[in-house]
């Protein structure tokens, strides 16, 4: 599947799912309905972008869920009570992410294990900050997340914005190209004189930034936090990147696809409740949808290969 068509399947899956939701629940086809459907998708989309930054450099981040929980806890406590200190903590956390990226590269460590270890660390700090659910959302974040722009609901605007900004950053800027090159051919990047360590640290720092943003948005929506608030984001974000047409190796990622993948996963939950499916099967059906989309992708890519083969032959 060439890059141009990579985005096609995520778009189609989202459209099909959205059409199904509208068919089942026509009232969802409104400003309010759309906002309700996609509200919780904003932090998931940001976490998915964070995960994409790591997958882009051929690593995988198993700590993003606990990191988002940690950021949410900082936002609901320090950032609310003493904004300067809160901001300092969040910036330190982003620097820590960069340091992990550098460490992984310098010592040639397996990212899957280091991030696994970090998931304990972030989880531990989050428990220390908020042993029981609580805290409060800073007023400005709450206002930002509940703002009602004309015509299109906040959640949709935010997702388009996230997709646009990251698309420019990753697909259009020279830095983004270099970062993707690290995933594509690390040796070539190193030989042409770039510091792979700095680039990897940069990719991890970007992941940290989007992780922090995800935590802040989440608190803005839920108005309080707890240490386990976003644990499922780790798996959701990996699934979102893959659903969005990204691949585990080779720096082949798509920011727009990743956001759409996250939206699809968030929508899958609403779709299933509209289907009046027993809550027992909610998680299972999400897995089934994931499998289904990947199966369709296989059919697409096979056909693509056949066409290419015919042209060449």
């Amino acid at each position: 599947m060439s890059g141009r068509y990579r985005i096609l399947l995520p778009v189609i899956s989202l459209a099909v799912l959205l059409a199904a939701v509208f068919y089942l629940q026509p009232r969802a086809m409104s400003y309010f309905g759309l906002n309700l459907l996609f509200n919780l998708a904003v932090p998931i989309a940001l976490a998915t972008i964070a995960q994409m930054m790591i997958i882009m450099v051929n690593d995988i981040d198993l700590s993003i869920g606990t990191f988002v929980s940690f950021s949410a806890c900082v936002t609901a406590t320090f950032l609310n009570d003493t904004p300067l200190l809160g901001a300092a903590i969040l910036i330190a956390a982003i620097l820590a992410y960069a340091a992990i990226g550098a460490l992984i590269h310098l010592r040639e460590l397996p990212a899957i294990v280091v991030t696994l270890g970090m998931s304990f660390v972030w989880g531990g700090v989050a428990v220390l900050l908020l042993p029981s659910p609580g805290g409060a959302a800073p007023g400005w974040i709450r206002t930002l997340m509940t703002v009602k722009p004309p015509l299109v609901p906040m959640a949709v605007v935010a997702c388009v914005l996230i997709a646009g900004v990251t698309h420019v950053l990753i697909m259009r800027s020279s830095t983004g190209t270099l970062l993707r090159a690290v995933g594509g051919n690390t040796k070539a990047v190193a030989r042409s004189g770039w510091s792979v360590m700095k680039l990897k640290a940069g990719a991890y720092a970007l992941a940290g930034v989007f992780g922090v943003l995800s935590g802040m948005c989440l608190v803005g929506l839920t108005t309080s936090a707890d240490a386990n608030i976003a644990l499922r984001y780790t798996l959701l974000s990996i699934a979102g990147v893959i659903l969005g047409g990204g691949e585990f190796t080779g720096g082949k990622v798509s920011p727009v696809g990743a956001v759409i993948g996250a939206l699809t996963l968030a929508l899958a939950g609403s779709f299933l409740s509209f289907m009046r499916l027993s809550p027992d099967w909610q998680i299972g059906a999400q897995g089934a949808i994931l499998i289904l989309v990947l199966a369709v992708r296989l059919v697409f890519s096979r056909r693509g290969r056949k066409w290419k083969g015919a042209e060449n032959g």
């Binding site: 280091v114 660390v121 531990g124």
Partner: peptide, 25 residues
């Protein structure tokens, strides 16, 4: 130690062991 410190230490130990035992070392 409480649950928080316990988690932090567990994570740090995992990373330290991996950093010491594998990679370029």
């Amino acid at each position: 130690f409480g649950a928080g410190v316990r988690l932090i230490m567990t994570g740090t130990i995992i990373i330290a062991i991996v950093a010491a035992a594998s990679g370029k070392g």
